[in-house]
């Protein structure tokens, strides 16, 4: 299964890189495919961090606008397109969370039917790319089943809410040493599940 996951991951990476290259050439259809593939991941991710549907929408909007405007800031040496997108999404969601009590950013929309029609064509042609990613997601979920409940909880609290290890120890009434060990173990399992570790026999 690991090899299967790795193969799917590599396929997704190649498709993402190709989409990003097209986006850098101002191809809106490529952006539409990337959107259809990842918006269903970024939206609940943004929601998990910000706790607000409305703010999560703004996060997704800003991530794809960032991809459109600054797609050339991605460097393949620093990892996959997906990891870059997720890191961007997390940063934007945390920024919004910090500014929770400030005025929400406004939005622009002019309801261009023509644009909607144009991108919906890409929706059809990008179906396979989206389904391929869904298959990969299922593989990842299966490969992360060996994360214990506590390991997953600690990773989530740390990753989504930015809780420090000492905060976690206080909050969960667990010794700091145990928190550190469980976090290390959880990260190790995550790494094993990621493509890099999948390469190892």
């Amino acid at each position: 299964m690991q090899q299967n996951t790795l193969a799917q991951r590599q396929q997704c990476d190649r498709e993402d890189a190709d989409l990003l290259r097209r986006i850098q050439r101002a191809d809106q259809r490529a952006l539409a495919t990337l959107y259809d593939r990842y918006a269903p991941v970024f939206y609940p991710f943004g929601l998990r961090i910000t706790g607000s549907h409305e703010v999560a929408e703004d996060v997704v909007h800003d991530v794809f606008l960032h991809v459109w405007e600054k797609g050339n800031s991605y460097s393949p040496q620093s990892g996959s397109v997906y990891a870059w997108l997720i890191a961007t999404c997390r940063t934007k969601a945390l920024e919004k969370t910090r500014a929770t009590n400030q005025k929400r950013k406004g939005s622009n929309a002019d309801g261009s039917q023509q644009q909607a029609a144009m991108v919906s064509e890409e929706k059809q042609s990008g179906q396979e790319i989206i389904l391929a990613f869904k298959g990969y997601t299922e593989e990842v979920r299966n490969s992360l089943k060996n994360l214990s409940k506590l390991e997953l909880r600690l990773l989530e609290l740390s990753y989504y809410e930015g809780q420090s290890q000492s905060d976690l120890a206080r909050m969960l009434r667990i010794p700091l040493g145990t928190i550190k060990a469980k976090m290390r173990r959880g990260i190790q399992k995550l790494r094993q599940a990621s493509a890099q570790e999948g390469k190892q026999p």
Binding site: G79, I86, A87, S194, Q196
Partner: peptide
Amino acid sequence: YEATALLPL
């Protein structure tokens, strides 16, 4: 970054 990017999945 690759490893933690799996969490949102």
